[in-house]
Amino acid sequence: MILKIVVLAKQVPDTRNVGKDAMTPEGTVNRSALPAIFNPEDLNALEQALRLKDLNPGSTVTMLTMGPPRAADIIREGLFRGADNGYLLTDRAFAGADTLATSYALATAIKKIGQPDIIIGGRQAIDGDTAQVGPQVAEKLGLTQITYAEEILKCENGRITVRRHIDGGVETVEGPLPIVITVNGSAAPCRPRNAKLVMKYKKALVPLEMPAEGLPYAEEYKNKPYLTLNQWSTADIDADLQQCGLSGSPTKVKSVENIVFQAKESKTLTASDQDIDNLMKELLANHTIG
């Protein structure tokens, strides 16, 4: 069957590789010191979407992301790997959104795109680790959901079968389309970029990325409409501003602290036989071990 698939993806700071300069002396996050990457589990989700497209010719994969203009990287990355098109939600009014305000914006954009058969994204993003946006988008669209998916086993006759991770095991579930699926990091990794697609889309930009003085190859952008990526503001998706950004976020950050653990008086030892022999004697003598 021909499927309309939307992939939810987020550009995140690479919190897994936090260097010493990632925090300012005041204890705030130095975002510019962290490279921006494609959220890892969203790549697992993209792969599942592309596999469905491969198995169901005529299907389309649409990238949807929200962020500053540079988050257009997410759409380009998707196009390089086989997605058909994409939308960037970008507006100051989206800033400061918690998961609920984010899911409102995404759900509203999805309605604007036109209800897809499958909305698929990573289980969670590495900058927040909340795993909330997928289920919240599902609820806002009135759809059911399958979270922690590891593999889509079957998709036919309007139903989808998915193997998912659960605490202490796995289960196989079947649900009706349309549906929201979130994909676990244990799913298959994403395929690499396709060289031909990189050539085709490498110059693709959202309007906000285009220099004010005009593009050097304006003619090319005119002839190849796919080089101009879709960019939507709150007005473009008819969003209720009360539900966007900070004002649409029930959770407020009261305070943020750098954690300082109570430093202990520690005994420093070398790896020498004598030091370790003494340590073991001490721990055995005071019944810490043994």
Partner: peptide, 21 residues
């Protein structure tokens, strides 16, 4: 897995805030 599947849906339906982990 269950709490993180259920909590966000409930919070979305009630427009209440949810903090994970």
């Amino acid at each position: 897995v269950i709490g993180r599947d259920l909590g966000p849906r409930v919070s979305s339906a009630l427009t209440s805030g949810l903090t994970a982990d």
